[in-house]
Design a protein around this nucleic acid. Structure first.
Lengths: 203, 203
DNA sequence: TCTTTGGTAGTACAACCGTACTACCAAAGG
DNA sequence: CCTTTGGTAGTACGGTTGTACTACCAAAGA
């Protein structure tokens, strides 16, 4: 039994080709043929590793979600050690802003999937929809922790602040994507609002 | 020369059929055939009033933008007379939340168009992209006016507040669309944040 | 060495898309 | 009356899509 190919690696390779196409030409440009060509394989290979296009799309979505969460964790780690409340919160929120080419692709494709999921039950049932919920819970905890530590005003509604901030960073990310705001301006605005909730320890 | 049909009305009729389909099944479900069937016409009629699908999509987008701005104005008018700073600002921002079926459709289709515009230059050049810019300028002016009237703290950055609020309401609208937050909760959170910037005159 | 089998390539097909085209109809102007 | 013409319907065509299918190849086990 010949076993030359690493299935997992092949699937990732193909999923990355899909993300490249969706990021540059839109999710509607993702076809079996275009993905195969981008990945340097024949259509049959794509068919072989993913039995249908739907399976491929779902796998690519899960892969995307994993990559995004990896980036969030990397950003938290890079925010300083030991991580401050403000640093962690800012890291999580800033991740929603398309600052480089990769995160721009991630944000665009993610949004395209989200729009699609509104009218596609199979996509809506996907666990990637739960990610924002987790983030909201995480942020709420962090804000409460900052309040306990005296780093944030105690009369803040942590839940309302977390949900609002998350929505704001997502909205800012979309604005950057649409070219209405530069990534730098978006980050400044995000920091401005954060300063009013969880100020920097020192300036 | 027989002239029974009002071209303008027919075009609106067809555009509304398109929005109905895009709102319920997604923008990808919009085809010449589906739109014609939804509108109760033959494909030839759609072809007759819009020479191509692209023209139809652009017209429907402009029509959508017009309907949305009409809703904003109606909301401002309904916010009380004479309109207060807080009332007008809340009216503009709350319009981004999909509170009823119609605004839900509007928000969904608008977002779908926006995502498409990132990779489609013809759509990106469309003037509907300027609408958020106008709103941002409008909101900035309103916040400055509230500051002058002593209704808002003078040490607020009106531009940062306006951009942030707009992004937040857009993000909240998307969350409502995805079912992560109810429309009522989103409105509460929006009001919570507004209270910290431009408080209600009386409570 | 021969056979089994994981992996690859090419092709074919049914369905759908946008659009061009032709034919038809009914009302208005001569 | 008849002819012109705005509007409508049906159909056909070239192109693209997802997918099923068959053939082929190379490596491992017997």
């Amino acid at each position: 039994m010949p076993k030359l190919a690493d299935h997992g690696q092949r699937r990732v390779q193909i999923a990355e080709a899909l993300l490249r196409i969706a990021g540059s030409s839109g999710l509607h440009a993702v076809t079996m043929r275009s993905v195969a060509a981008e990945a340097g394989f024949s259509v049959s290979v794509v068919q072989y590793y993913f039995e249908s296009k739907e399976k491929l799309l779902l796998f690519a979505l899960r892969y995307l979600a994993r990559r995004v969460s990896e980036r969030v964790e990397a950003r938290i780690r890079a925010s300083g050690s030991p991580p401050t409340s403000r640093g962690v919160i800012e890291a999580v929120l800033a991740q929603a802003l398309p600052t480089d080419a990769e995160s721009r692709t991630f944000h665009l494709v993610y949004t395209a999937y989200a729009v699609l999921s509104v009218t596609d039950p199979a996509l809506a049932a996907q666990p990637f929809m739960a990610a924002p919920d987790e983030m909201r819970a995480f942020l709420t905890d962090r804000i409460r922790a900052a309040q306990s530590a005296g780093e944030a005003s105690p009369d803040l509604d942590a839940h309302a602040e977390a949900t609002g901030l998350l929505a704001m960073s997502a909205g800012l990310g979309t604005s950057v994507l649409l070219g209405q705001v530069t990534a730098g301006d978006a980050l400044s605005i995000l920091r401005y609002h954060l300063d009013r909730i969880v100020p920097e320890p020192e300036t």
